[in-house]
Amino acid sequence: MEEMTCPVTGCMIWSPIIKNEKFSRYLSDFRELNLLGKGAFGCAYKCQHKIDQNFYAIKMVPIGGLNKMSFETVIKEVHAMCKLEHSNVVRYYTSWVEPPTFGISEESSSQQPDVPHLYIQMELCERSIEDLLREDGKLDKKTYWKIVMGIMQGLEYLHGKGFIHGDLLPCNVFLLHNGEAKLGDFGLAKSFDAEHEMKDLKAAKDITVEMLRAIDPNLKNDLNKTVKKIF
């Protein structure tokens, strides 16, 4: 193990070394398949675990290149996710710190080479509501209600655990192949309070109204009335 100082926190962190060469848990345990998306703090990749053969999303964040506020936002996401386990919340598995990997894809090769990176292993959700609306343009009534109920059940669980999401947008509500909705991206999550609870609910309502645009025009009026009753 090699001891190194995190340039942001000043804390000592450990990087494993085998035979004087840096060992990468990411390269050792996973096959990187493709880029899922880029965000303000890093990139997320679809990966397959070499032993259990399951697919995961792994977010790679260059923590040494973040200012203090951004670093705290990333760590806050990890702290929130590790406390949550619900069918309508993206599942967290583990996280670790190591130097960046190179040569796996064009995007990962462009990561900052001289700073430690935080790797966050999560449940794989390849689409968001934003993707659904942009790519499909159409939404049937059954799928609509499944997504709406998933959002509400996820929020109910989240608020019951003492958290506010704080950044509920179509791009942060993810979908499985069966249409099940999952809340993700908890970088702005905060402790529960009544004011921010209302902001979460308003954001959820805005998403459901936005989805109405992709519904059959003949169903919009009835659905809109029901949505108003829910919220």
Score class of each variant (00 low, 15 high):
Val173Gln: 06
Val173Leu: 06
Val173Cys: 06
Phe174Tyr: 12
Phe174Gln: 01
Phe174Asn: 04
Leu175Asn: 04
Leu176Asn: 06
Leu176Gly: 09
Leu176Asp: 07
His177Ala: 13
His177Gln: 14
Asn178Ile: 01
Gly179Val: 03
Glu180Pro: 00
Glu180Met: 08
Ala181Tyr: 01
Ala181Thr: 01
Ala181Lys: 00
Ala181Asp: 03
Ala181Glu: 01
Lys182Tyr: 04
Lys182Glu: 03
Leu183Gly: 05
Gly184Ile: 00
Gly184Leu: 00
Asp185Met: 09
Asp185His: 08
Asp185Gln: 09
Asp185Trp: 02
Gly187Lys: 08
Gly187Asn: 07
Leu188Trp: 04
Ala189Val: 09
Ala189Gln: 03
Ala189Gly: 04
Lys190Thr: 13
Lys190Glu: 09
Lys190Gly: 14
Lys190Asn: 11
Lys190Arg: 14
Ser191Gln: 08
Ser191His: 07
Ser191Met: 10
Phe192Val: 02
Phe192Tyr: 15
Phe192Met: 05
Ala194Thr: 12
Glu195Gly: 08
Glu195Ala: 12
Glu195Lys: 15
His196Leu: 08
His196Arg: 12
His196Thr: 10
Glu197Asp: 05
Met198Leu: 11
Met198Gln: 13
Met198Ala: 13
Met198Thr: 09
Met198Asp: 07
Lys199Val: 11
Lys199Asn: 11
Asp200Gln: 04
Leu201Ile: 12
Leu201Thr: 00
Lys202Gly: 07
Ala203Lys: 05
Ala203Gln: 14
Ala203Cys: 09
Ala203Ile: 00
Lys205Gln: 13
Lys205Val: 06
Lys205Pro: 03
Lys205Cys: 10
Lys205Gly: 07
Asp206Arg: 10
Asp206Cys: 13
Asp206Thr: 12
Thr208Glu: 08
Thr208Lys: 04
Thr208Ser: 15
Val209Ser: 03
Glu210Gln: 15
Met211Ala: 12
Met211Phe: 05
Leu212Val: 11
Leu212Lys: 09
Arg213Cys: 11
Arg213Ile: 10
Arg213His: 15
Arg213Asp: 14
Ala214Trp: 05
Ala214Ser: 15
Ala214Gln: 00
Ala214Arg: 06
Ile215Val: 15
Asp216Lys: 14
Asp216Trp: 04
Pro217Lys: 05
Asn218Glu: 15
Leu219Ile: 02
Leu219Phe: 10
Leu219Thr: 02
Lys220Ser: 10
Lys220Thr: 13
Lys220Pro: 03
Asn221Trp: 08
Asn221Lys: 14
Asp222Tyr: 09
Leu223Gly: 00
